[in-house]
């Protein structure tokens, strides 16, 4: 059981190594990288490539570690008791399973995605140490231990908004997805648009990497933006020769797909103005 990318996801060798090591040792894999380099997608593609069910747990700033295990809905139970609902007698009826629980008891090995772990409170990863290490936890209300029958493949993504605790890091494999180089990028585009004309691809990538190199951009366009943009170029049937940036055109065609905020567009307009003056 080895992961080596899929027909819709280009994985570099070092990424494959990290994924396979994490699978072999059933340790979590922590993935970091620039936005839009396919961190979240990795988990989905691993699940698809290996034919395993996936459980996605998307973290928000309000997410608590406990929510990944289970939640005891005491309020519903109280309400039911007032309404005389017969379900009240059984506490199990009010325990809501979290994603970890679902993944642990899936019946076959599954892939568990913990997305954007750095969004949560700084103690959040610490609260999950034991659960991810031993792949088991205790339910106080029913006095039972939930143990993973098949240790899931855990993939955790982080956007580097907060530092993660050392104790947590020690238990993970780590991979940093670098922004793809031109060749990798070509492969990625090919995977999504197999029929793209070489000329168009070349010109589009040229422009894309030029845009990325402009200093002072608030949000550099990433892979997903490139793909959107190329899709647009194809739909609008823009001829390859009119994509190129030159003295008469300093803003890319259909730039809305690449530049996502006003300041960046302004920046390009200023650059365009300057280049016209020269």
């Amino acid at each position: 059981m080895k992961f080596s990318g899929t027909e819709s996801y280009v994985a570099t060798d070092d990424l494959n190594m990290a994924v396979n090591a994490a699978i072999a040792l059933s340790r979590p894999l922590l993935v970091k990288g620039e936005p839009g380099t396919g961190k979240t997608l990795l988990a989905l593609e691993v699940a698809r490539a290996l034919g395993k069910p996936i459980f996605e747990w998307h973290i928000k700033s309000t997410t608590k570690a406990q929510q990944g295990l289970y939640e005891y809905d005491a309020v519903s139970r109280l309400r039911d008791s007032q309404l005389g609902d017969p379900r009240v007698g059984e506490v199990r009826n009010y325990i809501k399973r979290g994603m970890l629980w679902e993944a642990f008891t899936a019946g076959e090995q599954s892939v568990l995605l913990i997305d954007e772990i750095d969004k949560a409170d700084i103690e959040f990863p610490n609260d999950l140490l034991r659960e991810l290490d031993r792949m088991e936890f205790y339910v106080y209300e029913t006095k039972e231990t939930i143990q993973a029958t098949n240790r899931p493949i855990v993939i955790i993504t982080s956007n580097n908004e907060k530092e993660l605790p050392d104790a947590f890091l020690r238990r993970c494999f780590f991979h940093y997805i670098r922004f793809p180089e031109k060749e990798t990028m070509e492969r990625i585009v090919h995977v999504h648009f197999p029929d793209i004309k070489p000329r168009l691809l070349k010109e589009a990538l040229e422009v894309f990497f030029t845009v990325r190199e402009v200093n002072g951009l608030k949000k550099k366009p990433s892979t997903s933006e490139l793909l959107d943009w190329i899709k647009l170029l194809l739909v609008e049937d823009i001829p390859p020769e009119s994509i190129r940036l030159d003295a008469t055109r300093a803003i890319p065609q259909l730039y809305g797909a690449l530049l996502k905020n006003e300041q960046d567009v302004h920046l390009f307009e200023r650059l365009a103005f300057l280049s016209r003056r020269q």
Binding site: D13, D14, M17, A18, A22, L29, K32, C172, F173, F174
Partner: peptide, 15 residues
């Protein structure tokens, strides 16, 4: 190279 990647994934936790 494989060893390099493996060692890096296992030992280093921050880019």
């Amino acid at each position: 190279d494989d060893f390099y990647w493996l060692a890096r994934a296992a030992l280093v936790k921050d880019e």
